[in-house]
Write a protein that binds this DNA or RNA. Structure first.
Length: 776
DNA sequence: TAACACTTGTTTTTT
DNA sequence: ACAAGTGTTA
């Protein structure tokens, strides 16, 4: 047995290159695998897990965290092929959110939740925030739900609880200057409301896991002991909360392997912190670093072009990605008169290449920066009779009718769920309006109970409503109570049918004969099918007691990427660059390479944002195996009007020797000169733009106003080692060293609260508040 | 309370 | 252009 295990383990290693093998074989301490694009990152992870299993580690002891459910599923399949399905199935493998929601359900009581808690998606969160802002009589223009939620999300990702938030002078100061002084209060109320709804938002799943581990060492101990080996994929896209979970779980045995590519970190807007991977070595002592540098995916030209682009970024771990594939064709940059023409050009080229290169439609992908760009390509592809499949946009489970049905399930599983309650109390319409809901809500708030409790005994809470309304409320209460009852008797699918039938949803759906209504009916039917399938798969896997809460849990953490359908292979793929991460295609079209679109307008103000956009472009190019075409339009229709567009600054970041001759010619005749012209005038234009926005207070935060009024260059010039500075975002810090990088000066600063950061002096916004005299 | 017209922000990416 | 939220009217 031992011998056999060894044979299997070493035969696994035979299928890897030297660097991959070294990374797989090292199991005795923390390791960081820096995996260049297309270097077999997934291969290393799957083989490493298989290797561990063959070495005799039980699957139950292995924790593997992935970025998407799809990645987890695919990896499980591959591992099953290597070591058998039985072992693969018992692995703890999934997204952070999926795995830790599972753990939180097991341990819910320890943190004051019930194990049947429901999960709020972003729109649920925004609805609740909108409600709270209204209840507090605040200006909803100032406290826009999206903004507020973003701020709360950032706090949670940094493990700042409402109490900590309210006690942090720096944050409060920031909020005051941003004219949102009561954010801390909204955060607190929001969190209380979630708790009394026995619900969590996405960020809570990570924050409460940390709170659980912080306050219950025995529980932490239990999982520490269980997870003998921890693997994390896409480590560059983890945030602080995730990092700390991994760190704590690995703190005893130190057997942790994280895989990632700092050059592909593209989720900082969601709280991902590139420092997690840049500083992994200092966070985990005696880390072994492995670099996977051979790209097996793309042609040499594509790899070289991508390298020349990413070299323009300042923050990165050095690596030398190379390809031994054929040299391949050069990258073509095409310009077009309009976005409309861009669509036609791409569609025509796909049609032509398919015939000339005998490529199937499935070999093509069109990648864009924003989902809104998909429409124009849909049109052009449809005109050319080219089949396509769009990823992204709003997912199946975000559709109104689906969310409505799901809300019934949520309320059945967790009657405290406030959002679900509000959503369906008058859907389908049963004559219970805003006024009545308001009264229930007020009663619930003043008695510190859930809406459901008020509904269940309206007289006990002195609801002042007329007899007719009371009757309607009672009918609704009975309906749901009846479902709750049935939930204990019927299986998930049977209950779902019952809900659709008895709630009146079915009746309403059938009566609506409009095309949209028919499509809604179809979607609801599809949801029922999905549930039936869910029950069937779980049963096949030997699970007996399949609960509605399990279905909900799975569904609320599902991504659009995860709902993959069969028979989509022969279609052109349309998706955002973000969702293309981890995928590959023979022929890639990166479209809409224009200023303010790619890089996005939002990202431009900060150097870090700009570097992230460049990484995003890097991700886009490195998806291509054989050919990569880049395009931009000179005019683009956006928000209802057509605007002139200017080629992206990133185009000149690619070394021209990797571009096809006609794109270089084209560049010289039109875009380079035109663009250079533009880039020359950019600075003045940017400044004008800034000034313009300053005069409109709601567009710019006061902090930025203050910062832009400071003469930056003088500050930057005079900066010396040992100086104390006050930075716009990071607060107070000491300059530990200054060095040249390229033509720019860069300061390394140790901030009091934000930790160590690098600042490009050209761009950093700060003031010197203390000079170091010893230096003179 | 429900249906309708009007206004408003929205568009960077998503677990 | 469009969806979503708000206000107005029956």
């Amino acid at each position: 047995m031992q011998q056999k295990g060894k044979d299997n383990a070493s035969s696994l290693l035979d299928k890897l290159n030297e660097a991959q093998r070294a990374a797989v074989e090292f199991c005795d301490g923390p390791s960081l695998v820096i995996a260049g694009a297309g270097s077999g990152k997934t291969r290393v992870l799957t083989y490493k897990i298989a290797y561990l299993l063959e070495k005799g580690l039980p699957p139950f002891y292995i924790l593997a965290l992935t970025f998407t459910n799809k990645a987890a599923r695919e990896m499980k399949i591959r591992i099953a092929e290597l070591v058998g399905e039985k072992k693969a199935r018992s692995l703890w493998m999934g997204t952070f959110h999926a795995i830790f929601s599972r753990i939180l359900r097991n341990e819910a009581e320890a943190i004051g939740f019930q194990s049947n808690f429901t999960i709020f998606d972003t729109s649920d969160s925004n609805n609740l925030i909108r409600l709270i802002v209204k209840e507090m009589n605040l200006d909803d223009k100032l406290y826009r739900p999206g903004h507020v939620h973003g701020q709360i999300s950032r706090a949670k990702n940094s493990l700042i609880t409402p109490a900590m938030y309210a006690a942090n002078d720096e944050i409060l100061q920031y909020d005051r200057m941003a004219k949102r002084p009561r954010l801390f209060e909204i955060y607190e109320r929001y969190q209380n409301r979630l708790r009394s709804a026995n619900s969590m938002d996405f960020d809570d799943l990570l924050m409460y896991t940390n709170i659980l581990f912080r306050d219950h060492k025995d529980i932490l101990e239990k999982y520490r002991n269980q997870f003998q080996y921890i693997l994390v994929d896409e480590y560059q896209d983890t945030n602080f909360a995730q990092h700390l979970i991994v760190k704590q779980l690995a703190d005893i045995h130190h057997r942790v392997c994280v895989v990632g590519d700092d050059a592909q970190s593209i989720y900082s807007f969601r709280g991902a912190n590139i420092d997690n991977i840049l500083k992994f070595k200092s966070n985990f002592q005696e880390t072994q670093i492995f670099k996977l540098e051979q790209n097996y995916r793309s042609t040499q030209n594509i790899v070289n072009a991508a390298n020349s682009l990413i070299k323009k970024n300042s923050e990165q771990i050095f690596k030398d990605v190379f390809s031994e594939n054929e040299p391949g064709e050069k990258i073509e940059i095409r310009s077009s008169f309009s976005d409309f023409e861009e669509g036609l050009i791409v569609a025509n080229k796909i049609a032509r290449m398919r015939l000339e290169e005998h490529a199937s439609y499935g070999a093509f992908a069109i990648l864009y920066r924003t989902n809104a760009q998909s429409r124009i390509f849909e049109e052009s592809l449809r005109k050319n009779n080219i089949p396509y499949r769009i990823y992204g946009g709003l997912s199946f489970y975000q559709r109104k009718e689906i969310k409505d049905v799901i809300s019934y399930f949520r309320l059945i599983v967790n009657p405290s769920d406030e959002e679900a309650f509000r959503r369906i109390i008058n859907y389908p319409t049963r004559g219970i309006g805003d006024v009545t809901v308001g009264k229930i809500s007020a009663a619930a708030a003043s008695h510190q109970v859930s809406l459901w409790q008020v509904l269940s005994s309206p007289t006990a809470y002195n609801l002042e409503i007329n007899a007719g309304t009371l009757k309607k409320l009672d009918a609704f209460q009975t309906l749901i109570a009846d479902f709750i009852d049935k939930n204990n008797q019927l299986n998930v699918f049977e209950l779902a049918q019952e809900v659709v039938k008895n709630s009146g949803i079915a009746k309403e759906a059938y009566e609506d004969m409009t095309p949209e209504g028919m499509s809604r009916t179809q979607n609801i039917q599809e949801l029922l099918n999905a549930m039936s399938e869910f029950v069937a798969t779980r049963q096949e896997q030997g699970e007996e007691n399949i609960q509605l809460v399990d279905f909900l849990s799975e569904v609320s953490l599902l991504t659009d990427q995860d709902t993959d359908k069969e028979g989509e292979a022969e279609k052109v793929t349309l998706m955002t660059v973000h969702s293309a991460k981890g995928l590959e295609f023979d022929h890639v079209f990166v479209v809409g390479m224009e200023e303010d679109l790619f890089p996005s307008q939002m990202a431009k103000s900060e150097i870090r944002g700009l570097e992230e956009e460049r990484r995003l472009f890097y991700v886009a190019i490195t998806r291509a195996k054989k050919t990569c075409s880049i395009s931009y339009a000179k005019s683009r229709f956006k928000n209802g009007i057509t605007n002139p567009a200017v080629p992206s600054r990133f185009l000149k970041d690619i070394d021209p020797k990797y571009l096809s001759s006609d794109s270089i010619l084209g560049a010289e005749s039109s875009f380079m000169t035109q663009a250079d012209d533009f880039w020359g005038s950019m600075r003045t234009e940017r400044i004008q733009k800034q000034e313009r926005t300053i005069s409109i207070p709601k567009k710019v935060t006061p902090l930025q106003q203050v910062a832009s009024s400071i003469p930056l260059s003088k500050e930057a010039e005079n900066l010396e080692e040992g100086d104390v500075i006050e930075h716009e975002r990071f607060g107070r810090g000491v300059v530990t060293s200054i060095e040249m990088s390229g033509n720019d000066r860069r300061a390394f600063v140790d901030f009091e609260s934000a930790g160590k950061k690098q600042l490009l002096l050209k761009f950093a916004k700060f003031t010197i508040i203390g000079h170091n005299e010893n230096n003179r």
